[in-house]
């Protein structure tokens, strides 16, 4: 299965929306860089993330989240927080990595 990474804010580009529209059941999505803004509670796309969890593993890169002033508590329930070691593990566990730039 694919590991999708998204590094764009959902408010700026459609990369996150396109990623979610193409992520198949069993695949995973990792939000990095400005992509972390898609992982936040109360943001416009929260329901997209909430509804996908279960079918799709949704992860956010903790260091990028923290750098932008957010903590674990700001993240939508069910979104898992990983560090770079976790990023590497996700890449290794999935067959292919696709970057949504």
């Amino acid at each position: 299965m694919l590991l999708h990474t998204v590094n764009k804010s959902p408010f700026e580009r459609n990369s996150f929306a396109q990623c979610m529209g193409h992520a198949k059941k069993g695949s995973s999505v990792l939000l990095i860089e400005d992509g972390v803004f898609a992982a936040l509670k109360g943001a416009a796309n929260e329901s997209v993330v909430s509804n996908a969890i279960g079918d799709i593993g949704v992860y956010v890169l903790g260091p990028d989240l923290n750098a932008r002033g957010m903590t674990d508590e700001d993240v939508i329930d069910g979104v898992k927080i990983v560090d770079y070691t976790g990023f590497v593990e996700l890449a290794a566990e999935h067959d292919v990595v696709q970057s949504w730039l």
Partner: peptide
């Protein structure tokens, strides 16, 4: 369509994004 595109992506072994 998106569904077929998703299949194409899942079928790939190396994805280069530009």
């Amino acid at each position: 369509d998106n569904a077929a595109m998703a299949d194409l992506m899942e079928d790939a072994e190396v994805v280069l994004s530009f």
